[in-house]
C-alpha cells in the first residue's frame, strides 16, 4: 500500500444517514460535509504486544498501519481526523511506539484536528500522543463511538473488524469490509495485524435487523456485495 492511489479510483460513494460518505481502499471513511476522515481499530503496537508474550511477530505492523493512514490523510487532506478506538492494541502501546513511528504520527497529525475515541483496548491514552481524547462524539446526525450501541441508530463505529467472505464457483476470497444499512456503518479495522470477524457472525445481527450491504475492499476497488452473497467461514 505504499504507492499512492488516485482518488477517483479508490473512493466508493455511499449515503449514510442522509449524507455522502466516501469509502476508501485503505479502510478509511471520509465525510465531506464535515471535512472529516474516520479510521477504526488501528491496533498500533499489536506486534510488540505479542512479542511480550513470546510470539515475535515482525515489528513492522505500526509502520505499515501508519503508511495506510498517512496515505489516506495526504490524499484527502481533511481538517479533522477521528480514530474510532482501539488505536493502540494495549495500554502500554503508546510507550512502546518507536521513535520513527512517533515522528510519522506527529507528522500526520500536523495541522489538523485529531480526535482519539477510546476503545476497549485503549481506555486510557497519554497526552504525549497528541490530539483530543473522547469517549464518543457527535458529527451532525451521526454518533461516533468505538463499540456499536444496541438498536437502530445513526452511528459510525468500529470494534468488530468486519470481513466478508465470498465464494464464487469454488473460488473464495475474504476481505475487510464496511457494513451499512444506510444509517449505521461498522468500519473495517485498519491495523496491519487486526484480524477480522465474519460479517455473517451473530454479533452483527442485532445491529442490522433489516440486513446490510457489505462494501468489500478489493485490490483495485471496493465492491458492494449483498448480504445474501456472503458466506460463513
Amino acid at each position: 500500500m505504499t504507492a499512492l492511489r488516485k482518488n477517483t479510483q479508490t473512493t466508493h460513494e455511499i449515503e449514510l444517514s442522509g449524507q455522502l460518505a466516501l469509502l476508501d481502499l485503505t479502510g478509511a471513511m471520509v465525510l465531506p460535509a464535515h471535512d472529516a476522515l474516520l479510521v477504526a481499530d488501528l491496533h498500533f503496537e499489536k506486534g510488540s504486544s505479542f512479542a511480550r508474550r513470546g510470539m515475535m511477530l515482525p515489528p513492522y505492523d505500526t509502520r505499515e498501519t501508519l503508511v495506510a493512514l498517512s496515505d489516506a490523510v495526504s490524499r484527502f487532506n481533511p481538517k479533522t481526523v477521528i480514530a474510532l478506538g482501539d488505536s493502540f492494541h494495549d495500554i502500554g502501546g503508546p510507550d512502546r511506539l518507536g521513535a520513527e513511528e512517533r515522528a510519522t504520527l506527529a507528522e500526520v497529525q500536523q495541522g489538523r484536528e485529531w480526535i482519539w475515541v477510546t476503545g476497549n483496548h485503549d481506555r486510557i491514552l497519554p497526552e504525549s500522543i497528541g490530539g483530543q481524547v473522547v469517549e464518543e462524539m457527535a458529527l451532525g446526525s451521526l454518533t461516533l463511538r468505538h463499540e456499536p450501541a444496541a438498536g437502530k441508530r445513526a452511528e459510525v463505529a468500529g470494534h468488530l473488524h468486519p470481513v466478508g467472505k465470498v465464494v464464487m464457483r469454488g473460488r473464495a476470497t475474504r476481505r475487510r469490509c464496511f457494513l451499512t444499512d444506510g444509517s449505521r456503518c461498522v468500519m473495517p479495522a485498519l491495523g496491519a495485524y487486526a484480524g477480522g470477524l465474519n460479517a455473517c457472525d451473530a454479533a452483527f445481527k442485532p445491529l442490522f435487523p433489516d440486513g446490510f450491504t457489505a462494501h468489500l475492499i478489493g485490490t483495485e476497488r471496493i465492491f458492494a456485495i449483498a448480504k445474501s452473497m456472503l458466506c460463513r467461514d
Partner: peptide
C-alpha cells in the same frame, strides 16, 4: 484456480 480477489468480488457484485 485463481487468486485474484477482484475477479471473484466483481462476479459477486454483478450477481447483486
Amino acid at each position: 484456480y485463481s487468486d485474484n480477489a477482484d475477479e471473484i468480488l466483481a462476479e459477486a457484485e454483478a450477481a447483486l
